[in-house]
Amino acid sequence: MSGYNKIINQSGTGAEKKTKGHWWMTVAPLYGFTILFVALPILYLIILSFLTRAQTWGVVNQFTLENYARIVKPVYLNTFKESFQLAILTTITTLLVGYPFGYFMARLPRKQKSFMMLLVVIPFWTSALMRMYGWIIIFRSNGILDKILMGLKITEKPLKLLYSYPAVLVGMIYSLLPFMILSVYSSTDKMDWSLVEAARDLGATRLKAFLTVTVKMTLPGILSGIVLVFIPSMGLFFIADILGGGKVMLVGNLIQNQLQSGRDWPFAAALSVVLMIFTSIMIWLYRKLSGVKDLEGLL
């Protein structure tokens, strides 16, 4: 039957030559919107990053590399470094915590699986701010966590966790964990378990079979989870803002500050371009490594 299917598939291209006619009308809105409101704005941002800031307000149409040169200054470089550290820490933790979860989830019986999926998805769908607010209540000085810890006599006085680096880290991990879980889940779910059985049959220990077969087979999910966690973790300025209380400065915060208080748009644009390049490299690497075009578990 493969021959038949081949012909059907080929016929698609054959028929198009003739039926193309009015199909352009269906894609026109997408083309128009994408070019006008995605491509063009991004292009403008890139141009903006090479322009000069005006003395008082606005932008002067004068080419400069000054904005990029400024990024290398220790103050800003340090922000990038800190952002990366936090992003890497977040990514590693979500991987370590999320992988087993996604893996176990895929091994559940069918009915429980879809129920578990629902359980994972619901917090995901609730307002991110609401969940951050929940953490504020928990971390607040003399808040729930302090009460519990002091009640258990683990600590004697309030920890003052809110507005600290650990609080931001928890917030990040908490917000991004579902991406990792779902990515790992979707690739584990697709895995051919007979391969693991074959490895076991050939004498591999449970651990060895896991390391050589399972990890390798779920690699696309792991990679896509890493990308899905790492990229946003550099831009989620509001988590650092709310839970860090201004003590933790990320690239996202830097951009926001430049825009709203500093009013230095060209510099903010340059920062964005650099961040965008990082993002593109990560997505490119992901495609290269996993050979998959769309991110696993994205939908």
């Binding site: 997408l30 300025f237 996202g252 951009i255 964005s272 961040l275 993002t279």
Partner: peptide, 28 residues
Amino acid sequence: RVNWKSKGAVEYISTLPIMIPEIILGMV
């Protein structure tokens, strides 16, 4: 249905808004 060369590029660009960090999109 269409078979244009620009198809892949437009499709890629149209998904950028959920690929790049939100803050960049906001800035853009």
